[in-house]
């Protein structure tokens, strides 16, 4: 077994534990490279199937290619796709691009709040109908009790403190100092009513591992990660008003691996193109309140 096989096995084990222990399980799919690798790992874990819904929070400011790619894979892989959004905030133009609020408040409304409400079922969800090929109002409104998320420990300080199975209280909050112990491949799979768990199968992966695996498995990824001829590519994807590409000539996964191994990016944070990390309390304070 090489290092990718080892990473794959641990992630698959975690996904299977999650599936065995949680009735209302869902996987957050941001359409980015990490959660797409995680989706692929789910197909590995369940032998080609994905036996739980994928959840995407649509801010309506995602780069259009991302949505097209999401719906293409949903059809091709017959995914159980659930989409949520903060309709009120969008209608009231309480967004950063509309000039209504600052970046951090925009993230909180369109992502954190929309995510919380989508997970709890308190806000209508849309589900992809494979017969009509359209999103239709979801009739299921049960709260999700297990949420699989693609965070990686090497991305950023607060994520390096995460558990594989990480509890969230009734108000979705994360208490860094109160985390349960986790050892010997035994995870927190018992939880009090009203609370839920975030499950993190990718915790041990690095940015380089992700690209090595994308290349090895030939996983389809959104074209924005690659230089399309203008000498730029996105290293981390988000909403277009708050995400900027990096200078790069990498046109394929192989060239991205070369770029990462070459050390050109090793002293630049992966999320440096994500503007919300730099404002106010940054990603850590977002995460404590329920952000991914």
């Amino acid at each position: 077994m090489n290092h990718l096989d080892e990473l794959e096995s641990i992630s698959v084990h975690i996904l299977r534990e999650a599936y065995a222990n949680f009735k209302n399980l869902g996987m957050l799919w941001s359409i980015g490279k990490d959660s797409t690798v995680m989706l692929w790992l789910a197909r590995k874990a369940f032998f080609g199937h994905v036996p739980f819904p994928l959840i995407h929070v649509d801010t309506h400011f995602k780069i259009p290619e991302m949505i097209a790619y999401r719906d293409r894979l949903t059809r091709e892989w017959r995914l159980n796709m659930v989409v949520g959004e903060n309709t009120e905030a969008l209608a009231a133009k309480q967004t950063f691009p509309d000039g209504g609020v600052d970046r951090l408040a925009c993230c909180k409304l369109l992502k954190t709040q929309a995510l919380k409400d989508t997970l709890s079922g308190s806000r209508p969800r849309m589900r992809f109908n494979h017969l009509t090929h359209r999103y239709e109002p979801d009739t299921l409104t049960d709260p999700f009790t297990g949420i699989i998320a693609g965070v990686r420990a090497d991305e950023e300080g607060s994520r390096s403190k995460e558990r594989y199975f990480s509890p969230r209280d009734r108000s979705n909050e994360w208490h860094v100092g109160e985390q349960p112990p986790e050892f010997w491949s035994q995870y927190k799979t018992d939880f009090a009513p009203g609370t839920h768990l975030r499950i993190h199968p990718l915790l041990d992966w690095t940015e380089l591992n992700i690209w090595e695996y994308i290349q090895r498995e030939n996983i389809p990824t959104v074209s924005l990660y690659y230089n399309q001829g203008d000498g730029k590519r996105y290293r981390s994807l988000g909403c277009y008003p708050c995400t900027t590409p990096i200078d790069s000539n990498a046109r394929t996964a192989e060239e991205i691996i070369e770029e990462l191994r070459g050390g050109k990016l090793s002293h630049v944070a992966e999320r440096s193109g994500r503007a919300q990390d730099k404002d106010g309390g940054g990603l850590e304070s977002l995460r404590k309140e329920g952000y991914m």
């Binding site: 090497d154 390096s160 403190k161 860094v176 100092g177 985390q179 041990d204």
Partner: peptide, 8 residues
């Protein structure tokens, strides 16, 4: 230090 940070 509160938790076991992982450093590569």
């Amino acid at each position: 230090t509160i938790d076991s940070a992982r450093v590569f």
